[in-house]
């Protein structure tokens, strides 16, 4: 393996470094360089975006699969099995596992990779844990950038795993071409969660631990919800796949094989119906909006906060001395004319 730790570290995040060289290293599959860059992008290091520019032309090849569901549903186990299944086909695989940050300390315990550690020393599997960090929209950008980096590294499949609650997670999962929602019987509030938004994004449902009581009921509820959605001819109807890993490894392996086939079917469907193009178009829109927000709005807000102007604005609005519209017009005038943004 190429020894690049120093140069990567020195280059990344600093001005005047050779972004072309770094991008090349990543495209050649250098893990250290890639993981460094993902970190820099997560930390919002400005210079890191330079490197990303050189990486971008090499992206757009990988299939991105999202895996979501409530805590304890067994997402990581499913992810881990999918990694194995894809490795058997000699696909190069990456996993991005998102876990929440503590709202109190800002720290996080990222424990998803624990279930995938058997792949840790496989050089063609790259697993990266990300914390939500609570920055508005930031997570989705970081995940988007990470996907580009892994894509450029030559990964064939990129699995994005996240807890299925909240807008932030839905944004993250929108990076995926195919979204799998993992459920488990007996957790009670699953159906509520599905109604609350995951339903819209799900392409495939998995009922995990399907030997348990309540599997049939969950399956029935799910199917009737899906029926409620109505069905147009030629439209993809999310299949419900039962997976059971208890007492019989053989059936479990069959279940996973079915899941893999369904992922493939869905992909073919996306290609055939040109939905993939639409998805990619939507992704491009989201991505541009995200970058606009982070590179124009972000610096403006940062500067306003740094100079104390932001607090000032808040207090003026509160005292009804000004309205937010006028204030923002002023800001717009200042910043955009000066070209600061």
């Amino acid at each position: 393996m190429e020894n690049t730790s120093r140069s990567t570290r020195e280059c990344s995040g600093k001005e005047g470094c050779d972004h072309v060289e770094l991008a090349k290293r990543i495209i050649n599959g250098n893990i250290r360089a890639a993981s460094r860059l993902i970190r820099d992008l997560e930390d919002d290091v400005l210079q890191a975006k330079e490197t990303l520019k050189h990486i971008y032309p090499h992206t757009g090849r990988a299939q991105v699969i999202g895996i979501t569901g409530s805590p304890g549903a067994g997402k990581s186990t499913i992810t881990d099995e999918l990694v194995s299944a894809f490795r058997e086909k000699e696909n190069k695989v990456a996993v991005l596992a998102v876990d929440p940050s503590s709202p109190f300390s800002g720290g996080a315990i990222l424990g998803d990779r624990i279930r995938m550690q058997r792949h840790a020393s496989d050089p063609d599997v790259f697993i990266r844990s990300l914390a939500t960090r609570g920055a508005l929209g930031g997570l989705s950008n970081a995940v988007g950038s990470a996907i580009h980096i892994l894509d450029a590294m030559g990964k064939d499949r990129i699995l994005v795993e996240t807890v299925g609650v909240g807008q932030q997670e839905v944004d993250v999962i929108n990076h995926a071409h195919t979204v799998i929602v993992v459920l488990v019987p007996g957790m009670g509030d699953d159906i509520q969660a599905i109604k609350a938004g995951i339903m819209e994004v799900a392409d495939i449902f998995v009922i995990n631990k399907a030997h348990r009581d309540g599997t049939r009921r969950l399956q029935k509820e799910l199917l009737s919800l899906l029926d409620l959605k109505g069905e147009c001819p030629g439209e993809w109807k999310p299949p419900v796949i039962l997976v059971d890993d208890v007492l019989n490894k053989d059936t479990f392996n069959e279940n996973i094989a079915t899941l893999c086939r369904t992922i493939e079917d869905h992909h073919q469907h996306l290609v055939r119906t040109r939905l993939l193009e639409k998805k990619l178009e939507k992704k491009a829109v989201v991505e541009i909006l995200g970058v606009l927000r982070s590179s124009i709005l972000g610096p403006i807000v940062k500067e306003l906060q740094a100079t104390g102007e932001f607090d000032d604005m808040v207090s003026r609005v509160m005292k009804r001395q000004n309205d937010p519209y006028t204030l923002v017009e002023e800001v717009k005038g200042n910043f955009l004319r000066n070209g600061k943004g």
Partner: peptide, 30 residues
């Protein structure tokens, strides 16, 4: 837990890890 509460991001690999698994995970996780 203590590291999380101190504001660090902690990647926990769990028990029964080989040195090889730990080293490559550390690099992937930067």
């Amino acid at each position: 837990r203590c590291f999380r509460d101190a504001g660090f991001e902690v990647i926990y690999t769990g028990c029964h890890q080989t040195p090889e698994q730990i080293a490559s995970a550390a690099i992937q996780e930067d």
